[in-house]
Every structure is written in structure tokens, then in C-alpha cells.
Amino acid sequence: MTDAIMTTAALPLPNATTPLLAVEHLTMRFGGLVAVNDVSFAAANRQITAVIGPNGAGKTTLFNCLTGFYSPTIGRLTLRHPDGKTFLLEQMPGYRISQKASVARTFQNIRLFGGMSVLENLMVAQHNKLQNASGFTIAGLLGLPSYRKAEQQAVDLARYWLSRVRLLDYADWQAGNLPYGAQRRLEIARAMCTEPVLLCLDEPAAGLNPRESGELADLLTFIRDEHGIGVLLIEHDMSVVMSISDHVVVLDYGRKIADGTPHEVKNDPAVIRAYLGEEEDEELPPEVAKDLEGKGV
């Protein structure tokens, strides 16, 4: 497994295998509750790393630490860009993590700008770039050509991602009026418009039907392969996780219990015990599985 990376105190020079993100001894306490307990793992560039675990295992808390909504009680979160720039995420205020460290995220309960149009959502995602181009609004107010050009490029990028997530026809719709699946896709497009090096997705397949889940898997593979960025994925839909992940981290009760390739994790006895139960009903939480057994199903 990847224990070697996790215990390395000094990170090696960047190369193809250097981790994009190193999470070291992350602990997050809320009063007496330990939501994440001494979790360490790494996520590599050009790979999809899935974080799985039963409800309440601490996955979303982990994400919130990563993206600056919580500041961890203990631990180090190192992000290393492919060009070698390094960021200590736990020390950065929330918005900087997206602005400077280029980490983008989506939310478990979709957080779009519901009253704004689809295209506007994607324009807001390019705020920092455009804000600079607009000379902190002054050049923009005067309508200087430099800003016009930047805006044009921003629309280009938005158009590209809209066509990728098949929402081009809905560009001028109010985002809140889109069907659920489309909102999920739009949120991913919005995150990608920030041009991240690490994309964190919090249960992107929740509420999608099997066809939509399949499309999502294709989209994530595309993002990984064509855009060469790292993807960190929290997901309950095992068909998605097992088919596209390069690397799976399993949490249970805030602790990491397994870490490896989908195949390794699948066969890890600790994981089976804690989470998957029998191989046939892999998506059932243990208590439900037990319940079913009791009824002789």
C-alpha cells in the first residue's frame, strides 16, 4: 500500500509519482466528537482518488478541512502543484484555497446560485481572473478592450464546459430551474471553470439514475485524462467508485481502515467487515445487511 508516502517527513522532488495532495495525521474534533481521527493518505495527479465509508465516517468533514471551511485540530495538508509550488492548506483562509492553491469542490447538497443563469454561474467561477482583468472594476466600468477580451475568453471556457456537461442549450436558463441531474453536472462544470489542479467532489452521483451515473463516470475519466488533474471523490455509488477510481481510501468512524487500488480494497477483510458486508450486497450498511439476514432474505 502507500504507507511509504504517508510517513515521509520530507516530500521528494516533484515527478510523475509525487503526490498532488498529502494528508498527514489529520484530526478534527468538534467538542468531544472526533469526526476525523489521525487520517493520512495521498492523492496523486492524473488519478481519481475515492474516499468511501459508511455515513458519518468523516468524509465530508475531511473535505471541509481540505477546502478551508473547517480548520483542522491537528494535521498537515500539503498541496503540490505539478510546477512545484507548494501550499499548506490548513493554514490558508477558505477562499484562498480555491484562489491560490487551485482546489475546487462541489457540495453534497448542491450549492448553485439558483437565481442566476447557468452561464452566470460559470462566470462567477472565473471571478478572480476576471476581477484582475477588470482592473478591480475600474477598467471594466470604463469598458476597456483588455477586459472585453478577458470576458470573451471566460465565455469561451464556460462554453467549453457547458458543451462537456451537455448544458449548452440551457446556458441562459435560471440555474435553480434545471432538473436535478443537470444541476449536479453544472456544479462540476462550475468547479472546473476555476481551472483547478485538484477537484473535490462530494457525492456527485447522489440522486442520479444509472444512466446519469454512467455519464458522470465518463465525465470524471475525461477530466482526469484530458485535463490531467487530480480528482478526489466521495461517493456511495460503488459502481462508479470501483469502475473509475485509481485509488481508494476507506474511512470508518473517522479512522482510515484501508487504502489501495479498488481491487485491493474490495478484498480487504477490514473493509468487508466494516462496510461492504457480503460481496453481493456491497452497498448495504452492515446493520441493514444483518437485518436482512435475520429475516431470511
Partner: peptide
């Protein structure tokens, strides 16, 4: 646009930098 986005959802704004 950022103002209007803040009105709609300021947590999402923070996540967009």
C-alpha cells in the same frame, strides 16, 4: 456578479475563491 452570487449562496462563493 460576485455580489449577486453572495446573495444567492455565500458558501459556494467562498469555494470558488
Amino acid at each position: 456578479r460576485a455580489w449577486e452570487a453572495l446573495r444567492e449562496d455565500d458558501i459556494a462563493c467562498s469555494s470558488l475563491g
